[in-house]
Design a protein around this nucleic acid. Structure first.
Lengths: 125, 125
DNA sequence: TCTTGACTTAGAGCTAACTCAAGGTATTAC
DNA sequence: GTAATACCTTGAGTTAGCTCTAAGTCAAGA
């Protein structure tokens, strides 16, 4: 699969795909004899994982670390497990923050809806 | 309340508090005759709201827009309502992304836990 | 009054995560 | 073979969101 096809499949720019590879956020992608990227199933798996992590807001640094551990072999399995557990905790905390903000937004939205309906404010910020 | 007290109360730097005010993410804070910030209850409400939005990952630009609308008076109430509804949608989408990533993490974590227990991989990335 | 420490502004500097540009190579269509 | 297009690398540029620095002002204690 060419970089163009991958970029269309995952709706991500070719620049970003090359960037992810360059900084080690995904392992080196399979190349043709001419040096052109030819993404295999395994490469796509890494791309998908990277996009998933980033879309949740996890820093690229974490994925770089994970890839390094992966490339270092099976001895790093406990370290990889710990990294994943740590990031899960980060995401759970982030979700708590989002929920707290959603509560606040919902409260304000209901107040504003009242204000719009009745044409006046009940007290608001 | 002095800027030091506010920064300690919300665990945020004084620089950031001044920055938020400077860019219009919160309205101008009450000052003493000497020009020193003296946060009132209302100022604290804005600080709290700003911190809440930022901690959920909403861009400062959105809060700036909201404050501008607020300062423009009651005629902007429908626009403010719409802004809040839009941001709620952004947060709900962000939460979906986090949940998707949590699912992926949990799957990988369970695989790694098996690998650590049994001392071998069942197939993993 | 003098000193000390907390406060002020304006503007420069920093980091993360892209994003773009320049100059070159590979592949495909004719 | 050549032209057009898609790819390549390296390195510089951009944006958001702080964070720090410099140079100065205000307020409280000796």
């Amino acid at each position: 699969m060419t970089i163009r096809e991958v970029s269309e499949k995952y709706d991500i720019t070719q620049d970003t795909l090359r960037y992810y590879e360059r900084i080690g956020m995904i392992p080196p992608v399979t190349r043709t004899s001419g040096g052109i990227r030819d993404y295999q199933q395994q490469d796509l798996g890494w791309v998908e994982l990277a996009i998933c992590m980033r879309s949740a807001g996890l820093p690229v640094e974490v994925m770089i670390e994970y890839v390094k551990l992966y490339q270092a072999g099976d001895a790093t399995i406990p370290a990889r497990l710990q990294l994943l557990i740590d990031q899960r905790e980060v995401l759970l905390e982030q979700r708590r923050q989002i929920d707290a903000t959603l509560d606040r937004l919902n409260y304000k939205i209901s107040k504003y809806e009242d204000a719009v309906k009745t044409g006046k404010l009940s007290w608001e910020k």
